[in-house]
């Protein structure tokens, strides 16, 4: 499993996330990142969800050795970061290699900075959050700040195979109209984004899916992310400028959070529908 090691801890370096909500009733504070805007920049740079954990640095930055290659993003205060010997600026994605060392100094222009790693950190949630709350030794890395010698591991995000993007989908209202063969084929088919796609709908080209019918009796509601199956058997994914009702069966849908990744696939790009 890929990991990093803290060579020097810095002044107050801890794992944080968006914080734990709704427990003030029990006098448990929210904790979490102190500069949400900066933290979100790092997460957005890596296309990570807003509740993903990251490392918060304060005033004096840590020195971190990467034992494995990783995609990371740094944001917030400028700590005069250096990757090995090269100066690196905040608010960018860095591709670090095995053995690389990221080191910062005193914070200038601001106090707090963030390091996000593209992978699921191997730490436990407490009350549905990764945020470290020091007084109760709760959350994050053993409930404390990161110290020299600490090893932080993460699970790598599966890289797209041969440039095929995997898109998570869920059964839609007419999922059962699909033939059994089509339900099986779904997991295997590699679709190509057709040049006919536009802001209303993304048209897929691939193996034809068969269904018991391709026409609803009445037009029914449609939301962005719904996947329709017209008589051609080639699915159409309704996008943000799509119609609000439609007459084709809604076989699958994908969640709004997955639309950004989908919408970045170029025309002619490949994707697989991964049925959850």
């Amino acid at each position: 499993m890929p990991s990093l090691e803290i060579l020097k801890p810095g002044l107050l370096t801890s794992i944080q996330d968006i914080g734990r909500q709704g427990l003030s009733f029990f006098a448990i504070p929210r904790a979490g990142v102190l500069d949400q805007n900066a933290a979100q920049i790092a997460l957005l740079l890596l296309n990570l969800p807003m509740d993903h954990p990251l490392i918060e640095c304060t005033s004096i930055a840590p020195h971190i050795q990467f034992n494995d290659a990783a995609r990371i993003a740094i944001s917030g205060a400028d700590f005069n970061w250096k990757l090995n010997d090269a100066a690196v600026h905040p608010n960018q994605v860095l591709h670090v290699n095995e053995g690389d060392i990221l080191r910062g100094q005193f914070a200038k222009q601001g106090l707090r900075g963030y390091i996000a790693i593209d992978g699921a950190l191997r730490i436990n949630k407490m009350y549905n959050s990764f945020a470290t709350y020091l007084p109760a030794k709760m959350g994050g890395y053993q409930g404390r700040t990161l110290q020299k010698g600490d090893i932080l591991e993460w699970e790598e995000q599966p890289a797209p195979q041969d440039g095929i993007v995997s898109i998570s989908v869920l059964p839609g209202p007419e999922f059962n109209w699909l033939s059994n063969a089509a339900k099986d084929e779904l997991r295997e088919v590699v679709y190509v984004v057709s040049a006919d796609s536009n802001r209303m709908g993304l048209r897929l080209k691939g193996t034809t899916l068969t269904a018991s019918s391709y026409q609803l009796q009445n037009s029914a509601p449609v939301l962005p992310g719904f996947i329709q199956l017209p008589p051609s058997g080639q699915p159409i994914i309704v996008l943000q400028s799509g119609q609000t009702t439609g007459g084709y069966p809604r076989i699958l849908y994908l969640r709004p959070n997955d639309l950004p990744m989908l919408n970045q696939i170029p025309l002619g790009g490949k994707l697989r529908l991964n049925l959850m």
Partner: peptide, 13 residues
């Protein structure tokens, strides 16, 4: 977030 009213279904996002 959204209400879509049709004759056969009402969709609530």
């Amino acid at each position: 977030d959204e209400v879509i009213v049709t004759e056969v279904e009402v969709c609530l996002k």
